[in-house]
Write a protein that binds this DNA or RNA. Structure first.
Lengths: 129, 129
DNA sequence: ATAAGATTGCTAAAATTTTAGCAAAGCTGA
DNA sequence: TCAGCTTTGCTAAAATTTTAGCAATCTTAT
């Protein structure tokens, strides 16, 4: 089943990313999220149609218009994205990724977030025994 | 400068991923890493040439053949990949990513790795004060 | 009811990506 | 040396992606 997001074209992936970020969106909303040099509304609709035909997306009729939703559950998509990132850039090492995240958010992490992370890790450690 | 990897085509990105994973590689090595349905050697060379022209890659003469190396430092590429992943799938939340990593590697993490991660987090917390 | 506005269905062409072949150049070992 | 193998340089065409227009349908408000 897998349906790997990495096999999609540039625009297709860009749209899938937007859908995962927003969870659900109309063609218009998607277009507005497509950053600088957005394609036309028409183009976005075509792409959504292609993604639907390929099975990556489905639409739900919401009143007058369509709302598009990713077909693969967010959890699954997250899982494979994270695995790929870890393998590609961090040699598969979990602690290397955590280290990078910490670096990344360094000054922005609140005391509460530190607590949360520590608890997560310790909880998992205990469960693993 | 940015040169976003997400703007590349499917094959181009696939090759960049391989180069980041291997750090450096010849066209042949790249081809051998291209999974099932690999393109021809010739095709891989063409793609590497395009990536070079776009400035994503450079080659070093190594004896008889070329070895290709990513131009953007691994650290920088990691940074933007991780940021994008976090924003797309984890709503920008650091602790959510950490939680996912833990889940992911659940049974495979050794006691030593748990220690390492905990130390990383605590060290950062102290420094942040 | 009906005009105005918005959304969809369909189509086609432009642009880019992906593919691979062949000649030339460079090394290697008999 | 020189025949054979490997790698590069160049080229061109097939395949896919990306683009957008227009008619038809549906909603909403007058």
């Amino acid at each position: 089943m897998s349906s790997d997001l990495r096999l999609l074209s540039r625009r297709e992936r860009q749209i899938m990313d937007i859908l995962y970020r927003l969870c659900r969106a109309t063609a218009l909303q998607v277009m507005q999220e497509m950053g600088p040099e957005p394609p036309s509304y028409s183009t976005v609709r075509t792409l959504l149609g292609i993604l639907e035909k390929k099975g990556h997306v489905r639409h739900e009729k919401e009143g007058h218009h369509y709302t598009y939703v990713p077909n693969t559950p967010a959890g699954e998509a997250r899982y494979s994205a994270l695995t790929h990132l870890m393998d590609t850039f961090f040699n598969g090492s979990a602690s290397a990724v955590v280290s990078a995240i910490i670096d990344l958010k360094q000054d922005k992490l609140t005391a509460g977030e530190y607590e949360e992370i520590l608890e997560l890790v310790e909880k998992s450690r205990k469960e693993g025994q």
